[in-house]
Amino acid sequence: MNNMLAIPKVNVKNMTDKEFFYGHKACAGCGGSIAVRLALKVLGERTFAALPAGCMSAVGFIYPQMAFNINALITTFPGAASMGSGIAVGAKAIGLKDFKTVVIAGDGGTADIGFQALSGMIDRNDDVLYICYDNEAYMNTGIQKSGLTPYGTKTTTTPTGKNLPGSVTHKKNLFEIIAAHDIAYAATASIGYPQDFINKVNKAKHTKGTSFIHVYASCPTGWGTPTETSVDIAKEAVDCGLIFLAEYENGEYKLNRNPKNFKSVNDYLAKQGRFKHMSDRDIEIVSSNRDKKWERMRKHWLQK
């Protein structure tokens, strides 16, 4: 493993002034575009990006518009990671040096449709950074449930009513599934904590082998939140414990943030149109699930 202390720090004062994701057609206040923009600013100009079907490819490549100011291309939906692998080894074969390959996919393209290719890429340990921006549903096609949609979410495929609370399944534990591959570096982040996200992308940039970042990114359109609160709601998700910030490297889990008291889950849910219908019983299910998860993480992941 490389020495993490030797990596030059990146922050808002010293990051490049160039924009690599500009003039795109994402909705106003899009959280996913904040994640992509910041990640590309950290990775720099010598980056190849591969994007499967999803919001970021839909808003970035509207011929002849090209919002990506780096080499970027759209891949097949299930093959984004394979394409990333191919770019990385292809560029190496023609003798390119000092470059990074990044795959930027949504939650559906990662946890559901693109999962097999992703698993294969981690298995081969190709030198690719995979960023999953998680807005908790297939937003690009009109808000359908994905494997990362949490319990009680109202989407067009999980309607709410007398008999259903919305999505009846909990969020897939993607971070631990990825870590179980014994990946070189994996992390979770949130756009509500941008410096933490920048640090993790920077770490992944300097990691040889596959790295994976699962970043929580809000979606005003799909979540029913005001556009200006995009960053705030992603921060609140971390503060109320529904999203955790953690890292996995050298075979060890590390909990980056372990708050003594959580903010109210109720307040977080009440701010979003997609959770407005939830009954007290449903909220109880969400918070008890959170408590169970944190109990397990604190038991196993905290350094002694």
Binding site: Y22, G23, K25, F61, Y63, P64, Q65, M66, A67, F68, N69, I70, N71, A72, L73, I74
Partner: peptide
């Protein structure tokens, strides 16, 4: 299907 990087034919 891609055009030149950073090509923006219209404003937002």
């Amino acid at each position: 299907p891609q055009y030149t990087a950073g090509f923006l034919p219209e404003t937002n």
